[in-house]
């Protein structure tokens, strides 16, 4: 297993590099579209101002040198400073923003996977049954309904009308644990609903396959109880493809947090990215793209590892 993880970690290195190149390229493209210095200096900026800013930011160096400098800095945790306030380091901005985003994404995955698995098992155990039909309609609706619409309806009833949860804002866990949970529950649910549907669909299908498999038949022929057939025999095997699906969904959820972050007024990575785009804050932009990319990579790694844990063939052969 250690070797398996080691191989995966090594495979991450070129991916990491690719993500760094993409982040950098996007920033360069943004720069090509409108001068960064111009956006710093404002409208009617003088040539002197632009020249000074370009010197300060090292924009006049050749591209490979700039990339190497940036990546070397990134390797030591230095992602430069924000263009809108040079006393603020990009790393500290990201450190401040990543907590809410990871809280929401993780929480949403917990909710989504738990609910999706429950639904998927019920559906997969008796495909075509009444419960399966109801759940399939529910999950088809959840896939079709945009998360932001569900989020805004939920926030209206659960938070504004009934006051169960906090309608917006983010409370740090260091300030109040219950406040933290109250503040991230709604955005997490908003983000989790499509996850529920996707996990349900995947698990239903792989559960159905697993239950039709020869080893389950063999287990039945040995008199193994139904609950054990489902939980011990079919589920671990059905989880293997499901974990891959969950991994994709985790990456997608990271990309989609900005919708719930905007709707629920949470200052996380998503809103940081949007603000950086709006203010053409190139350093913040490339830094946060890189970090989001790394988080996606880590998620993929975790998926690979849990894939290995679930699938003894992968675990033992590598």
């Amino acid at each position: 297993m250690a070797r398996y993880i080691g191989v995966r970690l090594l495979a991450m290195v070129p991916l990491l590099f690719a993500i760094a190149v993409i982040s950098f390229a996007i920033a360069v493209a943004m720069e090509a579209r409108g001068s960064i210095a111009g956006s710093v200096c404002g409208e009617g900026a003088t040539i002197e101002c632009i020249a000074q800013v370009e010197r300060q930011l090292g924009l006049d160096d050749p591209m490979p040198i700039r990339f190497l400098r940036w990546i070397a800095g990134a390797a030591t945790g230095d992602l430069g400073t924000s263009l809108t306030n040079e006393s603020v380091s990009v790393a500290s901005l990201i450190a401040d923003r990543i907590g809410p985003t990871l809280s929401i994404v993780t929480y949403s995955l917990v909710i989504g996977v738990a609910a999706g698995m429950a639904m998927g098992i019920v559906s997969g155990v008796r495909p075509g049954g009444a419960a399966d039909r109801v759940l399939s309609v529910v999950s088809a609706a959840l896939i079709a309904a945009p998360g932001f619409v569900l989020a805004m309806l939920l926030s209206w009833w659960l938070a504004v009308q009934w006051g169960w949860l906090s309608p917006a804002g983010y409370t740090r866990p260091s300030e109040s644990i219950t406040g933290w949970i109250r503040s991230i529950t709604l955005p997490a649910i908003g983000l989790a609903l499509p996850t529920v549907a996707l996990v349900q669909r995947q698990l239903r299908s792989s559960m159905t396959n697993a239950l039709q498999s020869r080893y389950v038949l063999a287990a039945r022929a040995r008199g193994i109880r139904r609950t054990s057939l489902i939980a011990e025999h079919a589920l671990p095997n059905a989880m293997i493809p499901t974990v891959t699906a969950i991994g994709f969904r985790a990456a997608a959820a990271l990309g989609l947090t900005f919708t719930v972050e905007v709707v629920f007024n949470i200052n996380g990575m998503g809103t940081l990215l949007i603000t950086a785009i709006q203010t053409r804050n190139v350093t913040v932009l490339q830094g946060s793209m890189l970090v989001v990319g790394i988080v996606v990579l880590v998620v993929n790694l975790l998926v690979d590892i849990s894939y290995g844990l679930l699938n003894p063939k992968v675990r033992l052969e590598s």
Partner: peptide, 14 residues
């Protein structure tokens, strides 16, 4: 492996 929305935003930026 990158989120679709991020790629969409990248193009929006460019």
């Amino acid at each position: 492996s990158l989120p679709i929305v991020l790629l969409a935003m990248a193009v929006i930026i460019v």
